[in-house]
Design a binder for these strands. Structure first.
Lengths: 175, 175
DNA sequence: CTTGAAATACTACTACG
DNA sequence: CGTAGTAGTATTTCAAG
């Protein structure tokens, strides 16, 4: 863990008993910085400083502290799935044959190599895993399904949910 | 749509008949640029130029073209969910009462306002929607479930799949 | 149509008050 | 936190491949 000190708001404004939301605990300026950088991090530091009404060095120090503290995990370019020829998204529920550690490990190792696999999570309930896979169209998904997904190790059942419309898909945390 | 011309590889190397993957169609340098920016876009342009063995101006022009073409949708800071006090992820399958346009519209409008909702998609199959919601812990999810999810308009059934382990969660497209 | 070298304008970063 | 100064970067211009 990292123990960098972060500026806290004077009004803690916590939700319920004994816990303060780390994001809400930030002061007004740090929140404004995060709001901006989550939306567009290609802004220059001087422009960012002007937006949050701070001098450039002070602003830069805050951004660096937010990175060092681990709150900002990284700054990345996002590729448009459609422009990348992967406009189709499929949610996949997976049930394994056996519930052994080896079985899970083998599946997880293989699942990460599935082309276009963006997410893969162990879940509770009627499925063992949920995956989110990006592909070009139904044809290419059908190929992926027949040639790769069905051959993932230890799979008993696969249920595919084709995404018809992406209502919301964000990396942003509200502030 | 944007019609900016992008550098194409001399070897198209397409998959199967009549289609070329837009990402694979890029030349070696553009792919190297995207690979880097998808991983860490906080790199300076001169450092990026050195990495891809190009002069700074030439490199900058390519990056700008990739943005203008729409392939790069944006550059953003990613917040670490755990550090933000939202270390728990839940996948939620939703079935609506009725399948009318009004019913769908009302649900979609409300779903986007659910605190911590990162994704919401219309899907085929036994559910109408899948949502991904980030929250602090099972307690806070229980509160969210009882106070918000159950009151989303037109909901017949909600099934929650708690994520026990995030195997893979990426915004990166392989190149 | 793209590249790289040089020149200029800004920006990031440091030292200090 | 801000001001002032320095170092380094982004960006334009232009000549050349």
């Amino acid at each position: 863990m990292n123990a960098t000190k972060i500026r806290t708001a004077s009004t803690p404004a916590s939700a319920s008993a004994g816990y303060t939301d780390p994001l809400q605990a930030l002061d007004r300026i740090d929140r404004a910085i995060l709001r901006q950088l989550q939306t567009d991090a290609s802004i220059s530091n001087v422009a960012l400083a002007a937006k949050v009404k701070l001098s450039a060095p002070a602003c830069l120090r805050r951004v660096e502290r937010l990175k060092e503290s681990g709150l900002i995990r990284g700054v990345v370019a996002l590729i448009d799935p459609k422009a990348a020829g992967a406009g189709m998204l499929v949610i996949i529920g997976v049930v394994l044959d056996r519930s052994t550690p080896e079985s899970f490990a083998a599946f997880e190792k293989a699942a990460q190599k599935v082309p276009g696999c963006m997410e893969c999570h162990v879940v509770t309930g009627e499925f063992d895993y949920f995956m989110a896979v990006r592909t070009r169209d139904s044809d290419s998904f059908n190929r992926l399904h027949a040639e790769q997904l069905l051959y993932l190790p230890g799979v008993r059942q696969i249920r595919s949910f084709m995404v018809l419309k992406e209502i919301l898909s964000t990396t942003r945390f509200p502030l």
